[in-house]
Design a protein around this nucleic acid. Structure first.
Lengths: 211, 211
DNA sequence: ATTTTTATGTGCAAAAATTCACAAAACCCA
DNA sequence: TGGGTTTTGTGAATTTTTGCACATAAAAAT
């Protein structure tokens, strides 16, 4: 359908979610999957799955279901995960270090091509992931020469906003922030926050409430 | 007010969010804060802040604002973060290891009291965080004797559901899952998922769309 | 060839969440 | 004391999101 509809934000988030079981089914060779099965595995409503997909086209066959391979390819095309992306990490403490070594990123096409740290003692050292740790001052240069598209912030909270500003100043327009503060950014830069303690606080509220 | 209203899920998530700037203001000695200031720092609407708080009582003073210390104490009481919680980590790879060493947890009252790994080579070793790494088989025992309340899963995706089942079997009713799969759990157990790659896929969608 | 079965795509209603807009209350100052 | 200012608390309107329920289409069975 050629209607120009605004895509709900939650829809995009769920599309990524759906791709997880689809990948598993593709690997195990299952050819066809139903909206009900996807919904069940992702903990959502089947109609929701169909509606989410319908925003982008008719990918299924009535009475049959969805072709796993086709659907996965379509979702990847929609999300733009059908290509690789170049990232940098700022803050090579324990967390940054763990992320740089994490297999899940590379497996999905997210390549770390630079690592920064403000600690002069660390600068120049080679990290086990293969990257040389660069000083913060080089962000501007390297973002441009290495064509870095996404910045990952794993600094202490006090330094996060400053680092974000440096990244944006260098032309970065997408930031994944692990510091437990809200990064302020202009419209043109997308920011996603990952705050573990926020999640924990959610957990304990529900634990406490139901006891 | 005495009305029995269901609290919206997003409200709980935002309460935790509001506590971040409140902590900062408390430390810097600012006595009073307005809903507008909180909203601004958290990227939400001021009316939203007031409404969220109003679900739990009248904490502000009209024409003045909110007492920072009071409000923070109230929010902590609501979320049940005014006490300490005992957690364990399962999966002492890079990520699990980084979390065990992360200061933000302890600072907020989340204490890791046990660490597990399925790798027999790791079992028995002492981790830099001070914990001895225990084999998976000891989950049941240790959850009970150490009174562990929350389980953190940092295993590879293939092992995550099995570990979750073990944890729930041992009596755990709250799980923070870092593996990129959807954990299936009965009603009685709260699960929060932290999936970095999901966030990245969100980022790249928006990057791609706006270019 | 026709009926039955199955599972998608979608209009519409319901539910949930957000935001507006304003009365109520507290403070300030003359 | 009273008018002006500020900011909360909240009813109502609006927007967004979800889910039902069924028409539609394809395949399978008879």
């Amino acid at each position: 359908m050629g209607k120009v509809t605004k895509i709900p934000r939650p829809t995009i988030e769920r599309l990524a979610l759906y791709s997880r079981p689809l990948e598993a089914f593709q690997e195990s060779g299952t050819p066809i999957i139903s909206s009900e099965k996807i919904a069940d595995l992702c903990g959502v409503n089947p109609a929701q799955v169909r509606k989410d997909l319908a925003y982008f086209g008719e990918f299924g066959v009535r009475g049959v279901g969805y072709d796993v391979k086709d659907l996965l390819r379509e979702i990847k095309r929609i999300l733009a995960t059908d290509r690789t992306w170049r990232l940098c990490i700022v803050g090579m403490g324990n967390l940054g270090s763990a992320l740089a070594l994490n297999e899940n990123f590379r497996k999905r096409g997210y390549h770390f091509v630079a690592a920064f740290d403000s600690d002069p003692a660390k600068a120049g050292m080679k990290h086990p992931c293969g990257l040389k740790i660069e000083p913060i001052g080089k962000i501007r240069d390297l973002v441009k020469t290495l064509k870095i598209e996404i910045g990952v912030i794993t600094t202490p909270p006090g330094k996060a906003q400053r680092v974000a500003d440096l990244l944006m100043d260098a032309g970065i327009r997408a930031i994944l922030n692990f510091a437990p503060i809200q990064i302020r950014a202009p419209e043109c830069c997308v920011v996603e926050n990952v705050d573990f303690t926020l999640k924990l606080e959610n957990l304990v509220y529900h634990l406490h409430k139901s006891s």
